[in-house]
């Protein structure tokens, strides 16, 4: 195995230029599990923890190397809330936002927040930078639009971020748990609502019919909330796996989305 330990972004991108198929290593919380279980033996690793540009968090730009521990202490309530549900303190001290995107697990806890805000993913290579909206970046389970030689640099959030926002997660315990279903809801003062659901499809997805239903009203009635829950359950496309059945996930998605929306509606 060959490892590069770049000191800055230019060195990191040069590393990926010479080794376009190199494996990026940030917190190691996904990669090292695969390595320890002998599922993965990367030939070349570019280790990113010394690259200061990736640690940047400047208002709406969150660097790929920002850890869950930092997200947990940050200014966006739903992002802080979701970060707190990731793994344990040990995992949150190491795992990064960029890693959550790069791994592109359908259950990635940061992804519903990014989807609900229509965040953009900034990627760079030796040749330059490009920006992809979350749904152009996440193309399938554990698959991204990242090209050989490219590195995730960070995430750009929109200028307008509604104060009403919440994250919810269903799992078998309070700590150290991968989501069975996760969800982020944001709602602006005019009522425009966005609902992103994770672990219930090949990638995180938006429940657009449910969004439309509640976006037109300032105070959704109880029957409208029932209908909202039903629409979310209809719109998700879960599978049965070792964590839950398709049927359970479909039901839980509706209930979780409704409860998360209700938290956004609270005065």
């Amino acid at each position: 195995m060959h490892i590069e330990r770049p000191r800055d972004l230019a060195e990191a991108l040069a590393g990926f230029d010479s080794h376009p198929r190199a494996t990026p290593l940030a917190g190691g919380t996904d990669l090292m599990v695969e390595v320890n279980l002998s599922h993965l033996r990367p030939e070349t690793v570019v280790a990113l923890r010394r690259v200061s540009e990736l640690q940047t968090w400047d208002d709406r730009f969150v660097g790929a190397g920002v850890t869950y521990a930092r997200l947990q202490a940050g200014p966006f309530p739903a992002l802080a809330e979701l970060a707190r549900t990731v793994g344990s303190p040990q995992i949150r001290a190491a795992g990064t936002l960029g890693g959550n995107l790069g791994t592109a697990s359908p259950a990635g806890d940061a992804l519903p927040f990014l989807a609900a805000l229509d965040a953009e993913v900034v990627v760079a290579s030796h040749g330059g930078e490009r920006t992809l909206r979350w749904d152009a970046f996440l193309v399938g389970p554990k698959r991204t639009a990242l090209r050989p030689g490219e590195l995730i640099v960070g995430v750009r959030l929109p200028d307008h971020i509604p104060a009403r926002q919440a994250f919810g997660k269903v799992g078998v315990r309070q700590a150290m748990v991968i989501a069975t279903v996760n969800c982020c809801v944001v709602r602006d003062e005019e009522g425009a609502t966005r609902v992103a659901m994770g672990a219930v499809g090949p990638t995180v997805l938006r429940a657009r019919a449910a969004e439309q239903l509640v976006s037109s009203t300032s105070r959704p009635s109880p029957s409208m909330l029932e209908e909202f829950q039903r629409l979310v359950s209809d719109e998700v496309v879960p599978i049965t796996d070792h964590r839950a059945t398709e049927r359970y996930r479909r039901h839980a998605a509706g209930v979780l989305a409704r409860r998360t929306l209700e938290r956004c509606l609270a005065p």
Partner: peptide, 25 residues
Amino acid sequence: QGECGACSVVFDGELVCSCLVMAAD
């Protein structure tokens, strides 16, 4: 796999699972 914490150490000031730190890094 970072689930149990039995390998916890302090690494550059942070509590981490040492099984998830690549030694070469």
